[in-house]
Write a protein that binds this DNA or RNA. Structure first.
Length: 118
DNA sequence: ACGCTGACATTGT
DNA sequence: AACAATGCCAGCG
């Protein structure tokens, strides 16, 4: 029976999103890769769309360019911006200040690099 | 089975 | 920074 069990991929994606620390943002591709699904950024997007999990920090997930994935003028976009600012993230014109190359990548590698899978 | 759409990424211009 | 092209996969009609 199917019961309320989602696919393994979905669970891994959700776990990866929850692993993102507050005040920090991650790209869809980044999350996908962390979930063991390289190239499946779109899948991550869809999962977020259907997921109703309020405990999920979906607002910390943005596009690789730092642009909010939700179109402007929608309540979702507004709420995401509000939450990000609430966590100390600088958001300007629907775009968040992304940790460019070097430090961002290095820090990420230091956090979740040499320890894949939990 | 087929074509479109989508909370995307990467590369090139 | 912005746009175009290509890749990628899951839903929907």
């Amino acid at each position: 029976m199917k019961s309320g069990t989602a696919d393994a991929a979905t669970l891994r994606i959700l776990a990866a999103i929850r692993a993102v620390p507050a005040g920090q943002v991650a790209g869809y591709g980044h999350i996908a890769r962390r979930a063991g699904l390289p190239g499946r950024a779109r899948l991550v997007a869809r999962v977020l769309g259907v997921s109703t999990d309020t405990t999920l920090p979906w607002h910390r997930v943005v596009r690789s360019d730092g642009v909010i994935a939700i179109p402007r003028g929608t309540p979702g976009h507004d709420e995401q911006v509000r939450r990000l600012r609430s966590e100390g993230v600088t958001v300007t014109n629907g775009r968040v200040r992304m940790p460019r190359s070097a430090d961002g990548d290095a820090l990420d590698a230091a956090l979740w690099g040499p320890t894949p899978r939990r």
